[in-house]
Every structure is written in structure tokens, then in C-alpha cells.
């Protein structure tokens, strides 16, 4: 490794385990990350604000069961949000849902810790949070969380697009794919980093180290110090850029609700032959459902 390359000094951990921040990432890309990050926070806050406005435009007053009893309601949050006991009532869906949720929660905490490590501990206290045994545990937990997350996403994709029962059809959603991209690029970036700048404790990043071993097996030193570094940087950028987004409504060009996500999947008026006033035979009903579901899938573009 050429020691004079400043972008690679960030990969070095000469004093023992220490999170290599911005390894192989030049300054322009770092600046891009911070600018894009602030922009993303702004968009996120605006999205929350829009939902807030949706709720608050309502009439005042809430049922008594939704007020007071803070302890009991906190328990319900623990049970249904953290414990996912409602989604787990359906085993397959509940399992991948819980995997995705907890993978996401742990990776969010991990990313937040990385920011605190680099932009708070390093800048303000001239020390580091993610070093030593704590950092090694951090790596092991996050690799596991990422794998659980990815497997959960693949199970979800299988159900949504392959087994595809009628009731899960709805909007074509970019979110699930962008989460796959984030996870997969995250692992590949980690693997390439461990190939470019190997460390003795790489095994704690066990998924990433596995990928690094593949790079060692199939690529020579020339590949590792050349194309692998470019690939690492571009995937790092993609990893950041693929952060999920969701459309507010499938189209805002038209005010008509039929342009929106779910309503698009309604049977067209001509196929709605089975209203109760003029009951259609059973076959017409089943045909009225099939085209609507294929229309949903067709709306993917």
C-alpha cells in the first residue's frame, strides 16, 4: 500500500482497532456526503411535517382510550412496536418484518454512533468512541444486523413479487429495493475496504471479511490496488445515494384520487359488474379481480 496516498491513511489502524472513517474516500466525496446528508435531513423533516399537517387538519378530540394511562400505553409500544407481536401473528410476514425492523434499528444506532465518533468525539474531545474492544463488538453486531436485514428484505421481496397473494398487491414501491441496495453495497464496500487495507481483527466484521476473502481468492494485488479501489469509492457513493425514499402519492399531477397508489389497483368501471344491485355470476367477479392485480404490477414503470 503506498503510504503517501492521503486517502489511504484513513484506512490504517496502527494503534489497534479503531474505526477507519473515510477510508479510500477523497475530500470531494466527503463534502458531497455532508451536503447530501443535510439535504436528506431537510427532506425527511419536511416529510414528517406534511404528515403532521395531515393529522392536525382533523377535528379535535380523541377517544378516552387514547389518552392518559401512560405506563400502560408505553407497555403497548414495547409489545407491538419493539416486540412486533401484532405482525408476528402471521409467521412468515412477521418474521421478515421483525428482521427488517431490528436490522434497521441496529444499523441506525450504528450509523449514529459512527457520526458521534467522528464528528463529536474526534472534533470536540480529541478522542474516539469506536476503538478497542467496543469497536470490535460494534462491528460484529452491525454485520449480523445487516445480514438479518438483508435476509428479511429478500423474504419480503419473494412474498411481494413472487408468491404475491392478492392482498399484498398495492403500490410498486422503491423503498424495498433501495434498502437492498444499501445493505448489499454496505457489505461489498466493507469487504473491499478489508481487501485494500487488511487488518488482523477483520474477522469481527465477519460478513465483510468473508467478502474480502473472496476478493483475495479471485483478484491479484494489481486488482486490489487498482480497480478495487475505484469500485470501493463508487459503491460507497451509491451506498449513500440509495438511501430510501417514498412517494407521497403515486402522482401529484392529478388531483383525482384514482391516480394514487392504491386506487390505481381498483377494478376499472367496466369490470365492476358485480355490485350488489346487479349481481354478476361468480366467474365475472374473479375476472374483475385478476386484471386489477395485473394492472398493479403493470404500473411498476
Amino acid at each position: 500500500m503506498p503510504p503517501h496516498d492521503p486517502t489511504l491513511t484513513a484506512c490504517l489502524q496502527p494503534t489497534g482497532p479503531l474505526r477507519p472513517t473515510f477510508c479510500n474516500v477523497p475530500e470531494w466525496a466527503q463534502v458531497t456526503l455532508y451536503v447530501a446528508g443535510l439535504l436528506a435531513i431537510g427532506i425527511f423533516a419536511y416529510g414528517i411535517y406534511r404528515h403532521w399537517r395531515v393529522w392536525m387538519a382533523g377535528q379535535p378530540g380523541a377517544p378516552a382510550r387514547n389518552t392518559g394511562r401512560w405506563g400502560e400505553r408505553a407497555g403497548l409500544v414495547a409489545r407491538y412496536v419493539l416486540g412486533q407481536s401484532k405482525t408476528l401473528e402471521r409467521r412468515y410476514a412477521g418474521l421478515f418484518h421483525t428482521g427488517i425492523l431490528w436490522g434497521f434499528i441496529l444499523l441506525f444506532i450504528g450509523t449514529a454512533l459512527a457520526t458521534i465518533d467522528w464528528d463529536v468525539f474526534r472534533l470536540f474531545f480529541a478522542t474516539r468512541l469506536l476503538g478497542g474492544p467496543f469497536y470490535l463488538g460494534y462491528e460484529a453486531v452491525l454485520d449480523t444486523a445487516g445480514l438479518v436485514f438483508t435476509v428479511g428484505l429478500l423474504l419480503a421481496i419473494w412474498r411481494r413479487y413472487v408468491t404475491a397473494p392478492h392482498h399484498v398487491l398495492g403500490a410498486w414501491d422503491f423503498v424495498i429495493w433501495s434498502l437492498v441496495v444499501v445493505n448489499v453495497t454496505g457489505f461489498v464496500v466493507e469487504g473491499l475496504r478489508l481487501a485494500i487495507a487488511p487488518v488482523a481483527w477483520g474477522g469481527y466484521s465477519w460478513v465483510g471479511q468473508g467478502l474480502a476473502n473472496l476478493v483475495f481468492a479471485f483478484g491479484g494485488a494489481e486488482f486490489i490496488q487498482g480497480p478495487a479501489r475505484s469500485l470501493h469509492l463508487w459503491l460507497w457513493l451509491l451506498h449513500a445515494a440509495a438511501a430510501p425514499r417514498r412517494r407521497w402519492c403515486s402522482s401529484r399531477r392529478s388531483r383525482s384520487p384514482t391516480r394514487c397508489t392504491w386506487s390505481r389497483c381498483r377494478p376499472t368501471p367496466s369490470s365492476r359488474t358485480s355490485s350488489p344491485s346487479e349481481p354478476g355470476p361468480r366467474s365475472s367477479r374473479s375476472t374483475s379481480r385478476t386484471p386489477s392485480s395485473s394492472a398493479c404490477r403493470g404500473s411498476a414503470s
Binding site: A57, G58, P60, G61, T261
Partner: peptide, 16 residues
Amino acid sequence: LTWKQRLGVDSCVRCG
């Protein structure tokens, strides 16, 4: 709709 009903409707994730 009350804000509570709107919060509910807005929470639909279309899981079916």
C-alpha cells in the same frame, strides 16, 4: 375526521 381518525388512516401500510 378527528385528528385521531386521520392519524389512523394515514398509518395504513396497505398490508392487506
